[in-house]
Protein backbone atom coordinates (compact mmCIF):
# COMPACT_ATOMS: atom_id res chain seq x y z
CA UNK A 1 0.00 0.00 0.00
CA UNK A 2 2.82 2.38 0.78
CA UNK A 3 3.96 1.88 -2.80
CA UNK A 4 1.50 4.64 -3.73
CA UNK A 5 3.08 8.08 -3.52
CA UNK A 6 1.78 10.60 -0.98
CA UNK A 7 -0.36 13.34 -2.54
CA UNK A 8 -1.03 15.30 0.60
CA UNK A 9 1.12 15.27 3.72
CA UNK A 10 0.08 17.18 6.81
CA UNK A 11 2.64 17.32 9.63
CA UNK A 12 2.18 18.58 13.18
CA UNK A 13 -0.48 21.04 12.11
CA UNK A 14 -1.80 23.53 14.65
CA UNK A 15 -4.56 26.01 13.83
CA UNK A 16 -7.44 27.72 15.54
CA UNK A 17 -9.46 30.85 16.07
CA UNK A 18 -8.48 33.74 18.36
CA UNK A 19 -6.71 32.51 21.47
CA UNK A 20 -7.95 28.94 21.07
CA UNK A 21 -6.07 26.20 19.30
CA UNK A 22 -8.44 23.78 17.65
CA UNK A 23 -5.94 21.42 16.04
CA UNK A 24 -3.12 19.95 18.12
CA UNK A 25 -0.12 18.55 16.26
CA UNK A 26 -2.31 16.93 13.67
CA UNK A 27 -0.66 14.74 11.04
CA UNK A 28 -2.20 12.82 8.18
CA UNK A 29 -1.43 11.58 4.69
CA UNK A 30 -3.47 11.00 1.56
CA UNK A 31 -1.98 8.84 -1.19
CA UNK A 32 -2.77 9.08 -4.89
CA UNK A 33 -6.01 7.27 -5.69
CA UNK A 34 -7.21 6.94 -2.12
CA UNK A 35 -10.37 7.90 -0.31
CA UNK A 36 -9.32 8.91 3.17
CA UNK A 37 -11.91 9.85 5.75
CA UNK A 38 -11.66 11.80 8.96
CA UNK A 39 -14.39 10.83 11.39
CA UNK A 40 -15.15 12.53 14.66
CA UNK A 41 -17.82 14.09 16.81
CA UNK A 42 -19.19 17.62 16.59
CA UNK A 43 -16.51 20.16 17.39
CA UNK A 44 -13.63 17.73 17.03
CA UNK A 45 -11.99 19.98 14.42
CA UNK A 46 -12.91 18.20 11.19
CA UNK A 47 -13.98 21.30 9.28
CA UNK A 48 -11.09 23.30 10.71
CA UNK A 49 -8.72 20.65 9.36
CA UNK A 50 -10.11 20.97 5.84
CA UNK A 51 -10.29 24.75 5.99
CA UNK A 52 -6.67 24.94 7.11
CA UNK A 53 -5.55 22.64 4.29
CA UNK A 54 -7.27 24.79 1.68
CA UNK A 55 -6.04 28.02 3.25
CA UNK A 56 -9.25 29.50 4.63
CA UNK A 57 -7.81 29.21 8.15
CA UNK A 58 -4.16 30.06 8.67
CA UNK A 59 -1.89 27.34 10.03
CA UNK A 60 -0.02 28.40 13.19
CA UNK A 61 2.67 25.76 13.09
CA UNK A 62 3.27 22.62 11.11
CA UNK A 63 3.46 21.91 7.42
CA UNK A 64 1.02 21.09 4.64
CA UNK A 65 2.65 19.68 1.52
CA UNK A 66 0.50 18.95 -1.51
CA UNK A 67 1.97 17.33 -4.61
CA UNK A 68 5.38 18.77 -3.78
CA UNK A 69 4.12 22.31 -3.01
CA UNK A 70 4.17 23.81 0.47
CA UNK A 71 0.65 25.18 1.05
CA UNK A 72 1.20 26.41 4.58
CA UNK A 73 1.37 30.13 3.77
CA UNK A 74 -0.58 30.20 0.50
CA UNK A 75 -3.94 32.02 0.18
CA UNK A 76 -6.93 29.88 -0.92
CA UNK A 77 -7.10 31.13 -4.52
CA UNK A 78 -3.53 30.00 -5.19
CA UNK A 79 -4.15 26.62 -3.57
CA UNK A 80 -7.05 25.92 -5.93
CA UNK A 81 -4.72 26.53 -8.87
CA UNK A 82 -2.39 23.79 -7.61
CA UNK A 83 -5.18 21.23 -7.99
CA UNK A 84 -6.85 21.02 -4.62
CA UNK A 85 -10.57 21.82 -4.57
CA UNK A 86 -12.96 21.86 -1.66
CA UNK A 87 -16.68 21.32 -1.58
CA UNK A 88 -17.34 23.27 1.62
CA UNK A 89 -19.55 22.40 4.55
CA UNK A 90 -23.19 23.32 4.01
CA UNK A 91 -22.63 23.05 0.24
CA UNK A 92 -22.32 26.82 -0.26
CA UNK A 93 -23.55 26.81 -3.81
CA UNK A 94 -24.26 30.23 -5.33
CA UNK A 95 -28.03 30.46 -4.82
CA UNK A 96 -28.69 33.14 -7.44
CA UNK A 97 -26.50 31.68 -10.14
CA UNK A 98 -27.97 29.05 -12.41
CA UNK A 99 -26.73 25.49 -12.17
CA UNK A 100 -24.62 25.96 -15.26
CA UNK A 101 -23.16 29.24 -13.99
CA UNK A 102 -22.30 27.54 -10.71
CA UNK A 103 -20.33 24.96 -12.66
CA UNK A 104 -18.62 27.68 -14.68
CA UNK A 105 -17.56 29.42 -11.47
CA UNK A 106 -15.94 26.17 -10.40
CA UNK A 107 -13.72 26.45 -13.46
CA UNK A 108 -12.75 30.05 -12.68
CA UNK A 109 -9.05 29.22 -12.47
CA UNK A 110 -9.03 27.52 -15.86
CA UNK A 111 -8.34 29.26 -19.16
CA UNK A 112 -9.47 26.61 -21.65
CA UNK A 113 -13.12 27.38 -22.56
CA UNK A 114 -13.46 24.25 -24.73
CA UNK A 115 -12.16 22.04 -21.95
CA UNK A 116 -14.56 23.69 -19.49
CA UNK A 117 -17.53 23.15 -21.81
CA UNK A 118 -16.51 19.52 -22.29
CA UNK A 119 -16.19 19.00 -18.54
CA UNK A 120 -19.63 20.50 -17.96
CA UNK A 121 -21.06 17.89 -20.38
CA UNK A 122 -19.05 15.20 -18.62
CA UNK A 123 -20.48 16.03 -15.21
CA UNK A 124 -23.98 16.40 -16.71
CA UNK A 125 -23.61 12.75 -17.75
CA UNK A 126 -22.56 11.77 -14.26
CA UNK A 127 -25.27 13.91 -12.61
CA UNK A 128 -28.21 13.88 -15.08
CA UNK A 129 -30.36 15.86 -12.65
CA UNK A 130 -27.99 18.83 -13.05
CA UNK A 131 -28.51 18.86 -16.77
CA UNK A 132 -32.27 18.83 -16.29
CA UNK A 133 -31.99 21.78 -13.95
CA UNK A 134 -29.16 23.59 -15.72
CA UNK A 135 -31.05 26.87 -16.19
CA UNK A 136 -32.57 26.96 -12.72
CA UNK A 137 -31.15 28.99 -9.89
CA UNK A 138 -28.95 26.96 -7.58
CA UNK A 139 -30.97 28.06 -4.56
CA UNK A 140 -34.09 26.35 -5.92
CA UNK A 141 -32.53 22.88 -6.00
CA UNK A 142 -33.27 20.28 -3.34
CA UNK A 143 -30.62 19.51 -0.75
CA UNK A 144 -29.38 16.40 -2.53
CA UNK A 145 -29.25 18.17 -5.87
CA UNK A 146 -27.34 21.03 -4.28
CA UNK A 147 -24.82 18.59 -2.86
CA UNK A 148 -24.31 17.03 -6.28
CA UNK A 149 -23.90 20.51 -7.72
CA UNK A 150 -21.34 21.39 -5.02
CA UNK A 151 -19.31 18.27 -5.81
CA UNK A 152 -19.54 18.78 -9.58
CA UNK A 153 -18.56 22.43 -9.13
CA UNK A 154 -15.46 21.47 -7.16
CA UNK A 155 -14.59 18.91 -9.85
CA UNK A 156 -14.73 21.62 -12.53
CA UNK A 157 -11.32 22.83 -11.32
CA UNK A 158 -9.96 19.38 -12.35
CA UNK A 159 -8.52 18.80 -8.90
CA UNK A 160 -6.00 16.11 -8.10
CA UNK A 161 -7.47 15.98 -4.62
CA UNK A 162 -11.08 16.68 -3.69
CA UNK A 163 -11.88 17.81 -0.16
CA UNK A 164 -15.44 16.97 0.85
CA UNK A 165 -16.87 18.49 4.00
CA UNK A 166 -19.92 16.65 5.37
CA UNK A 167 -21.57 15.76 2.06
CA UNK A 168 -24.34 13.94 3.96
CA UNK A 169 -25.32 17.02 5.99
CA UNK A 170 -29.08 17.47 6.15
CA UNK A 171 -29.88 14.89 3.48
CA UNK A 172 -32.38 12.04 3.53
CA UNK A 173 -30.79 8.60 4.07
CA UNK A 174 -31.54 7.46 0.54
CA UNK A 175 -29.96 10.57 -0.93
CA UNK A 176 -26.90 10.02 1.27
CA UNK A 177 -26.52 6.55 -0.24
CA UNK A 178 -26.63 8.09 -3.73
CA UNK A 179 -24.05 10.74 -2.87
CA UNK A 180 -21.64 8.19 -1.46
CA UNK A 181 -22.05 6.00 -4.52
CA UNK A 182 -21.09 9.00 -6.60
CA UNK A 183 -17.99 9.65 -4.48
CA UNK A 184 -16.93 6.03 -4.92
CA UNK A 185 -17.48 6.26 -8.68
CA UNK A 186 -15.40 9.45 -8.88
CA UNK A 187 -12.61 7.74 -7.00
CA UNK A 188 -12.71 4.84 -9.46
CA UNK A 189 -12.22 7.44 -12.19
CA UNK A 190 -9.01 8.56 -10.50
CA UNK A 191 -9.91 11.41 -8.14
CA UNK A 192 -8.31 11.20 -4.70
CA UNK A 193 -10.67 12.22 -1.93
CA UNK A 194 -10.28 13.50 1.61
CA UNK A 195 -13.69 13.10 3.18
CA UNK A 196 -14.79 14.59 6.48
CA UNK A 197 -17.96 13.03 7.78
CA UNK A 198 -20.10 12.67 10.88
CA UNK A 199 -21.85 9.72 9.30
CA UNK A 200 -18.93 7.48 10.20
CA UNK A 201 -20.52 4.25 9.03
CA UNK A 202 -21.13 5.46 5.47
CA UNK A 203 -17.73 7.14 5.29
CA UNK A 204 -15.82 4.07 6.48
CA UNK A 205 -17.72 1.84 4.06
CA UNK A 206 -16.40 3.67 1.01
CA UNK A 207 -13.00 4.86 2.32
CA UNK A 208 -9.67 3.05 2.08
CA UNK A 209 -8.29 4.45 5.30
CA UNK A 210 -9.67 6.46 8.17
CA UNK A 211 -8.46 8.82 10.88
CA UNK A 212 -10.28 9.32 14.15
CA UNK A 213 -10.25 12.92 15.34
CA UNK A 214 -11.02 13.78 18.98
CA UNK A 215 -10.83 17.38 20.25
CA UNK A 216 -8.24 18.32 17.66
CA UNK A 217 -6.01 15.24 18.04
CA UNK A 218 -5.73 12.20 15.83
CA UNK A 219 -6.39 9.35 18.25
CA UNK A 220 -6.37 6.50 15.82
CA UNK A 221 -5.82 5.54 12.22
CA UNK A 222 -6.21 2.31 10.32
CA UNK A 223 -7.66 0.68 7.24
CA UNK A 224 -11.29 1.71 6.96
CA UNK A 225 -12.66 -1.84 7.08
CA UNK A 226 -10.72 -2.52 10.28
CA UNK A 227 -11.98 0.71 11.88
CA UNK A 228 -15.50 -0.30 10.90
CA UNK A 229 -15.14 -3.45 13.00
CA UNK A 230 -13.15 -1.90 15.86
CA UNK A 231 -15.36 -2.31 18.97
CA UNK A 232 -14.18 1.04 20.34
CA UNK A 233 -15.19 2.84 17.15
CA UNK A 234 -18.43 0.89 16.93
CA UNK A 235 -19.36 2.04 20.42
CA UNK A 236 -18.27 5.66 20.07
CA UNK A 237 -19.26 6.52 16.49
CA UNK A 238 -21.52 3.84 15.12
CA UNK A 239 -24.02 3.76 17.98
CA UNK A 240 -23.60 0.13 19.01
Amino acid sequence: MSAASPLLVVENLEAGYGPINVLHRLSLTVHVGEIVTIIGANGAGKTTTLNTICGLVKARTGRIVFNGHDLTQLPPHNIVRLGLAQSPEGRKIFPRLTVRENLEMGAYTRTDPEGVAADIQKWYKMFPILEKRKSQLGGLLSGGEQQMLAIARALMARPKLLLLDEPSLGLAPQVVVQIFAVIQELNRQGVSVLLVEQNARMALKIAHRGYVLETGRITGTDRADLLLHDPRIRQAYLGE
Binding site: L56, V80, K92, I93, M105, G106, Y108, T109
Partner: peptide, 8 residues
Protein backbone atom coordinates in the same frame (compact mmCIF):
# COMPACT_ATOMS: atom_id res chain seq x y z
CA UNK B 1 -16.31 31.67 1.26
CA UNK B 2 -17.49 29.54 -1.64
CA UNK B 3 -15.83 32.00 -4.04
CA UNK B 4 -12.53 31.58 -2.23
CA UNK B 5 -12.95 27.81 -2.53
CA UNK B 6 -13.37 28.26 -6.31
CA UNK B 7 -10.04 30.04 -6.55
CA UNK B 8 -11.31 33.62 -6.63
Amino acid sequence: LASACMGL
